[in-house]
């Protein structure tokens, strides 16, 4: 069973690229949200295995969304990776606020899934594994 990821980013193209990369290269199941608010709702409903959260967003920005996720008991345990342009990131500060790690934009779409696994301590699952898993079931 492939792990599921929730990608929260206000930029449509980035969402699409991230989704394509994580699905086709990483073999994950990916759902997307276009705003912090929507992301909170989806996180609550779908309970993904991890969340990738953009830092700079209008309305409810990344930090506030992270705080909210960690405050809500149902979503508090879901690991969150912050996605950010280098300059604003303060890795230590974000980790201190509850993030599992930080990914830098622009990312290499071919490396993104491995980077995610590295941060979360997951074993990188190739498509073959999923197929074989699926075949077993």
């Amino acid at each position: 069973m492939p792990r599921s990821l929730l990608v929260i980013d206000d930029d449509r193209d980035i969402r699409q690229v991230a989704k394509t990369s994580l699905e086709l290269v990483g073999g994950f199941h990916v759902i997307v949200a276009d705003s912090g608010q929507r992301g909170l709702t989806l996180a609550h409903e779908a309970r993904p295995d991890a969340i990738i959260l953009d830092l700079m967003m209008p309305d409810l920005d990344g930090r506030k969304t992270l705080a909210q996720l960690k405050r809500t008991p149902e979503t508090a345990s879901i690991p969150v990776i912050m996605l950010t342009a280098k300059v604003q990131a303060d890795r230590q500060e974000l980790v201190g606020q509850g993030a599992a790690g930080v990914l830098v934009k622009p990312f290499d779409p071919m490396q993104l899934p491995d980077q995610v696994c590295q941060i979360l301590g997951w074993v990188p699952s190739g498509k073959d594994e999923d197929r074989s898993d699926a075949a077993e079931k």
């Binding site: 980035i14 690229v17 990369s21 086709l24 342009a85």
Partner: peptide, 28 residues
Amino acid sequence: FVSVVSHELRTPLTSIKGALGLLVGGVT
């Protein structure tokens, strides 16, 4: 300004690099 610009420039770059990377990587 530097902060804002860096974000503004990096956002489209992310999509460009992402899309091209997937193309070149043979994923599509």
